[in-house]
Each structure stands twice: as C-alpha cells, then as structure tokens.
Amino acid sequence: MNGALDIATAVLLIAGGLFCIVGGIGLHRFSEFYQRTHAASVTDTAGAGLMLLGLMLQGGLSMVTLKLVLVLAFLLFSSPAIAHALVKAAHGHGLALELEIEDEPGRDGDAAG
C-alpha cells in the first residue's frame, strides 16, 4: 500500500518536473514574448499542479494536504492574473504582436488601455 503510494508520488513528481523543464525550454525556443507567456503557463499549471498533487499523496488526510491545496489555489488564482497583466501591459506598451489572423478590434479600437 505504502509502496504503491510512494511510486505514485514519484511518478507525479517526475512528470511535473518534466513539464517544468518543457516550459523552461519553451521559454527559450519560442521567438516572441507573447508566445513565451504560453510556455510559462505550462510550468504554472501542469508542472506545479502535478508536483503538488504528488506531495498531497504523501501528506494524506492532514493539515499538510490542506496547506498544499491552499498553495495550489493561490498559484491558480495568481498566475492568470499575472499573465493577463503582463500581456496587456506589453500590448498597451506597443510591443509588436505577430499575427496570422486577427478579428477587427472593438468599437473603441486600440487596446492601449
């Protein structure tokens, strides 16, 4: 029983670590700022989520698990806020955005908010 739990934790930790590294690689392989935010979002969701899930298995039903849930919740609330703020700031700042398809902007046009 305990052995199976340990194995599950190891698998989740290593999978999370791999997703983290993939995000880090994406941070270097993608050529533009806006694309890199997507790579960062991989580490923030899959990487952090899987690793914390693996630790939760070790924590069992205890305060430790509750705290891990809190860490995950805070991360899931803060990372989209940061990503949105960054992208909107960059767009408002006029950082060029490479596009293949673009819907026409809304009625008050420029997103320089």
Binding site: G16, I21, H28
Partner: peptide, 16 residues
C-alpha cells in the same frame, strides 16, 4: 524521488 523533482525544478530555474 524528491531529489529528482528538485533537480528538475533547479534546471527550470536556471532556464528562467
């Protein structure tokens, strides 16, 4: 296993 996870995190930190 914790060490493997930490190693992956540190690699990511260096990339960042």
């Amino acid at each position: 296993m914790y060490l493997a996870g930490m190693a992956a995190i540190v690699v990511t930190m260096f990339l960042a």
